[in-house]
C-alpha cells in the first residue's frame, strides 16, 4: 500500500476499534489508538506473513507484548482475513469467545498468549535465536508499551538479545509517555529509554510512531549493525480522537454515547480529508 492508503486504513481501523469497544463496553481504548499506526505499518507493508503461513518456521513472527491493546489487533487480523469480522464483532467479550481482553493462541494470527507484561521480548529472543540456529531469513517483531519497561524481565531479555547479536529481532516501544496511573515519568521513570537500550547493546532508532511514512521508512530499512534493533515510536495515547488523546484515564475507558458519536464524526472527517489528498 502507498502511504495515503495506509493512512486511510489506519482511520478505518481506528473507527472499527472505537465501535467494537463502544458496542461491547470493554477495551483498552487509549492503548489501541496509540499503536494503530504501528500495526498498520507492520501488517500492510512489512510483515512477511499471511493467514496461511502465520506460525510456520519461515514466516515472520509478530509478538504483541502489550497484550492489552488487543482490540486494534483483532480488527487488523479481521481486515487481513485471519479471522472472521462478523465473529469478532458479535463475539468480542461474550461468553466462551476467543475474542477477549488479551491475546491468546485461540485466535489465528496470535502466536503467543500475552497480557502479563514483560514477556514478549523474551519470547521474541527465543523465536529470533531459533531462526538463526535454523539459518532462516525470518524476522521477529515485538511491540511493547513504555509503562511495561518497568518489568525486570524485559531487561533480562534485552541483555540476551544483545548477547546473541539478534539483528533479526526488532522491538518497538509504543512510547506515549502515559500508563494507567499517569505519566510514565511520575509512575516509574524509564526515560531516557533510548540510552538504556543503547547501553544494553541495541541499535536504537527514534521515530514519530503516528507518522506512517516515517514508520514505513524505518521498518523497511535494513538493520546492518549486527545488533538487535529498537524503534522508539513516539506516539500519542488515544491518537485520532480528541477526547481520548493524551489522557491516562482513557487507558481502558469506554466512550459514552456522546463521546462515541463525536469520535465517529472526527474519524469520518479525517477520512474525508484523506479522500481529498
Amino acid at each position: 500500500m502507498n502511504i495515503l492508503e495506509l493512512r486511510k486504513k489506519a482511520v478505518q481501523l481506528r473507527k472499527r476499534t472505537w465501535e467494537l469497544i463502544y458496542n461491547h463496553k470493554n477495551g483498552h481504548t487509549g492503548s489501541d489508538l496509540s499503536c494503530t499506526d504501528i500495526l498498520v505499518a507492520l501488517y500492510y507493508n512489512v510483515l512477511n506473513q499471511t493467514p496461511e503461513t502465520v506460525g510456520t518456521l519461515e514466516a515472520d513472527t509478530y509478538i504483541q507484548s502489550k497484550g492489552h491493546a488487543v482490540e486494534i489487533w483483532y480488527e487488523v487480523l479481521a481486515d487481513k482475513g485471519y479471522i472472521d469480522r462478523d465473529d469478532l464483532e458479535k463475539g468480542y467479550s461474550t461468553f466462551n469467545s476467543p475474542y477477549i481482553g488479551h491475546p491468546t493462541t485461540d485466535v489465528k494470527g496470535m502466536e503467543f498468549h500475552t497480557g502479563s507484561l514483560g514477556h514478549g521480548l523474551g519470547l521474541g529472543v527465543g523465536v529470533a535465536l531459533a531462526a538463526k540456529m535454523n539459518s532462516l531469513k525470518k524476522h521477529t517483531y515485538v511491540l511493547m508499551g513504555d509503562g511495561e519497561q518497568a518489568e525486570g524481565s524485559i531487561w533480562e531479555a534485552a541483555m540476551a538479545a544483545s548477547n546473541y547479536n539478534l539483528d533479526n529481532l526488532t522491538a518497538i516501544i509504543d512510547h506515549n509517555d502515559l500508563q494507567i496511573t499517569g505519566t510514565t515519568d511520575s509512575v516509574m521513570r524509564s526515560n531516557p529509554i533510548s540510552n538504556k537500550y543503547e547501553a544494553f547493546g541495541w541499535n536504537v532508532i527514534e521515530v514519530d510512531g503516528n507518522d506512517l511514512a516515517a514508520l514505513i521508512h524505518v521498518l523497511t530499512s535494513e538493520n546492518n549493525t549486527g545488533k538487535p534493533r529498537l524503534i522508539v515510536a513516539n506516539t500519542v495515547k488515544g491518537k485520532g480522537i480528541t477526547v481520548a488523546e493524551n489522557r491516562a484515564d482513557w487507558h481502558h475507558k469506554v466512550p459514552s454515547q456522546e463521546e462515541f458519536e463525536e469520535g465517529i464524526r472526527e474519524l469520518d472527517a479525517q477520512m474525508e480529508a484523506l479522500n481529498h489528498e
Binding site: 519470547l123 529472543v125 535465536l129 531459533a130 535454523n134 524481565s153 531479555a157
Partner: peptide, 26 residues
Amino acid sequence: PDRTVEMGIAEQNAVTVAAGLAHGGK
C-alpha cells in the same frame, strides 16, 4: 556447543526464551 544456550543467571528469561525457541522448532 551448538546444542547449548547459556542464559546467564536469569531463570525467568530462560523459561521465556525457551518457549520462544520451542515456537521456532527447537
